[in-house]
């Protein structure tokens, strides 16, 4: 992760505020700075309502950001006209959570996979596009005999493979995976995770892996960002985050996973009180303060900045003031 390299994707103070009826503002993404280097997988973890899915979609400009910058290879794409943006869609792709609603029920499998290639006319002829679609089916482990089937005839795991083949059809560089396995059964989940990791190796893909499942994110990511109410509260390399979590929220999140390990049966969860508070008209200050056991007067009144407390380990918490190199 040398800093001289240009990140593949970088966001600078990216914000998405939704205006609600009556003028209230919903802070979905509230000033996110992140850098993703080519070949890396960054995991974005958080509970429902923390803005992680919105972040993924905003980076792809499927949702227009309110302010801030999104740099792709160092170039700001937030101001691009729709024609230029359409070209860029080849490089930036997404895999959806729900293998049912993300596929048009009226299109056959091969039509779904070929759709993007027809939009961009990547090949001169129809048959060339269909041939490529067949190769993609091989690539994601979907038997060719399903080519003319309709999605509703297939199970969730196969449908998710269709979604992956579609995302790969334009040879993207960067893929946002929005909870791609959380709708699947455990055994199928593992198949899809393996597939995604193989593809990353073979095709040199860069993922942003959005999920609520910490064990999945640890498994697949190099770097993890923990989000809470639109803010990044902690960001570090995967192993570092799991062995040395610093933010109270990260700690609670890690401790709340029921592990399939009988020796930990009697370990108590570190419970955090209450539930995620409302993201509407948020006041400045640490977003987690209301549920935090270590809250002090320093936590409210102003937003807490991310600080680099160890190499490549960033935390936004008043408890961690030690900044490296300062």
């Amino acid at each position: 992760m040398d800093s001289a390299r240009t990140p593949l994707i970088e966001t600078v103070n990216l914000k998405k505020l939704f205006k609600l009826n009556g003028g209230a503002l919903l802070h979905a993404v509230d000033g996110i700075n992140m850098k993703v280097y080519s070949g890396e997988t960054i995991g974005v973890v958080g509970e429902s309502g923390c803005g992680k899915s919105t972040l993924g979609r905003t980076i792809l400009r499927l949702i227009e950001p309110t302010s801030g910058q999104i740099l792709y290879n160092g170039v700001d794409i937030t101001k691009l006209k729709s024609g230029k943006m359409r070209e860029l869609r080849k490089d930036l792709q997404i895999i959806f959570q729900d293998p049912y609603s993300s596929i048009d029920p009226r299109k056959s499998v091969v039509e779904v996979i070929a759709e993007y290639m027809f939009i961009h006319n990547t090949f001169p002829s129809k048959s060339a596009i269909y041939n490529r679609a067949a190769e993609l089916m091989d690539l994601v482990g979907l038997a060719r005999r399903y080519a003319n089937s309709y999605p509703h005839e297939l199970d969730g795991g196969r449908r998710q493979r269709i979604g992956i083949a579609r995302a790969l059809s334009l040879n993207p560089k960067f893929i946002v995976c929005d909870e791609p396995v959380s709708a699947l059964d455990v055994s199928i989940q593992a198949q899809i995770l393996n597939l995604l990791m193989d593809l990353a190796d073979e095709l040199g893909l860069t993922y942003m892996f959005v999920t609520h499942d910490l064990s999945v994110v640890k498994h697949i990511s190099n770097k993890i960002m923990v989000m809470y109410l639109g803010k990044c509260v902690e960001m570090a390399a995967s192993d570092e985050l799991f062995t040395n979590p610093l933010h109270p929220y990260t700690k609670a999140l890690l401790s709340a996973i029921p592990e399939p390990d009988i020796s930990k049966r009697d370990e108590e969860f570190v419970l955090i009180k209450g539930e995620i508070s409302s993201p509407i008209n948020v006041k400045p200050g640490c977003r987690f303060a209301a549920r935090c056991d270590y809250v002090s007067e320093k936590c409210t009144g102003r937003d807490i900045e991310l600080k680099e407390v160890a190499k490549e380990h960033f935390v936004a918490c008043t408890l961690c003031n030690q900044e490296v190199g300062k």
Binding site: N194, S215, H219, D239, I257, P260
Partner: peptide, 30 residues
């Protein structure tokens, strides 16, 4: 969880869960 014998399906379920403790690159799905 700790018995000597396990049904292959149960074993498959255990292998499908990404572990928090070990750093293995590939899962062994059913």
């Amino acid at each position: 969880f700790t018995g000597e014998k396990r049904h292959p399906y149960t074993q498959g379920l255990f292998d499908s869960i990404p572990s928090l403790n070990t750093r293995s690159n590939r899962l062994k799905p059913i």
